[in-house]
Computed example of a mutant assay.
Amino acid sequence: MSPITTHILDTTLGKPAEGVSITLCRHQQNDWMELAQGSTNSDGRISNLLSEAIPSGTYKLRFETQAYFDKLGVTTFYPFVDITFSVITGEHYHIPLLLNPFGYSTYRGS
């Protein structure tokens, strides 16, 4: 399993958010380096972003929410959501996103 996984629940619909593009980046020398990309499946999940362990550091998941809401014909306030977090080598990180057109929240899942 990837050391970083994610899951999106559209809290307005009460359903997983399918087809959301997500990019994983690592912060290095005051810049962001892209490591992986993927799209959520029918269960709103991406479990295969990475195939190997990653070093400690600061990482970011960018969720392209505008395209998702455009497909639904819904106006949104957030064209994308960036979640920045710290990684300690050897641990698994599950980063869920609870999303609606005018708000979102996140937490460290298991």
Rank of each mutant, 00 (worst) to 15 (best):
V74Q: 15
L61S: 07
T76Y: 04
P16M: 03
N41W: 02
R45A: 12
F63S: 01
N48P: 01
A53L: 14
N100H: 13
L97H: 05
L9D: 00
E64C: 07
S110D: 12
M1V: 10
P101C: 06
Q28L: 12
N48E: 06
V74N: 14
S39N: 13
L35G: 12
D70M: 05
A53F: 03
A17C: 04
F85M: 05
I22R: 02
E64K: 03
R62A: 06
G57N: 00
L24N: 06
P16F: 00
Q66C: 04
S21C: 11
A53D: 15
D43G: 07
A36D: 14
L98N: 14
Y68T: 06
V74M: 15
L13I: 07
I95D: 00
M1F: 04
Y93C: 05
S42E: 14
T65Y: 02
A67C: 09
D43R: 11
Y107M: 10
S56E: 03
S110L: 08
G90S: 08
D70G: 05
I22G: 05
G38T: 08
W32V: 08
S42D: 15
E52G: 03
Y93Q: 05
R26K: 15
L35A: 06
D10I: 10
S105G: 13
Q28I: 15
I83W: 02
E91K: 12
D82W: 08
Q37I: 10
N41K: 02
H92R: 09
Y78W: 13
C25V: 12
G19N: 08
T23I: 14
P55R: 02
S105P: 00
I4E: 03
T40E: 04
M33A: 08
P96Q: 07
D82R: 03
F69R: 07
G19R: 02
F69K: 09
R45D: 09
Q66K: 11
T11S: 04
H27M: 08
Y104A: 11
G109E: 14
L50S: 04
T89Q: 15
L50N: 01
P16V: 01
W32S: 00
Q66A: 07
T23K: 14
T84Y: 00
T65H: 07
I8A: 02
G90A: 07
R108G: 05
I22Q: 01
G90N: 04
V81S: 02
F63W: 14
K15Y: 11
S39M: 14
